[in-house]
């Protein structure tokens, strides 16, 4: 049961990571990257590390996402080919 959870979560992590790397729309990349962080939060919590999970949720999914969004707002949304 818990193995299944791990497998699903790790597969989701890999899928999101690949999507972020391939996305040419940086706004989409940032949003998917925040989803990566949320998935990671679940993995941490499942692994019995609630401290790390809370930090990941607040910093990984929250703060860095906003900082990335501000950066996009001040530069450009499209990756240069």
């Amino acid at each position: 049961m818990s193995d299944l959870f791990d497998i699903v979560m790790l597969a989701l992590l890999i899928a999101t990571a690949v999507t972020v790397a391939r996305a040419r729309d940086l706004l989409a990349a940032v949003v998917i990257f925040s989803m990566y962080s949320l998935t990671m939060t679940l993995v941490w919590q499942h692994r019995g590390a609630p401290d790390v999970a809370m930090t990941e949720a607040a910093v990984g999914a929250g703060v860095t996402t906003v900082l990335f969004l501000i950066t996009i707002a001040r530069t450009t949304r499209r990756e240069k080919p």
Binding site: P50, D51, M54, A58, G62, V63, V66
Partner: peptide, 16 residues
């Protein structure tokens, strides 16, 4: 669970 670092992160998230 929790402590200084976690509180800092959540404080900053509220602020932002």
């Amino acid at each position: 669970p929790g402590g200084g670092f976690q509180a800092a992160a959540v404080f900053a998230a509220v602020f932002i």
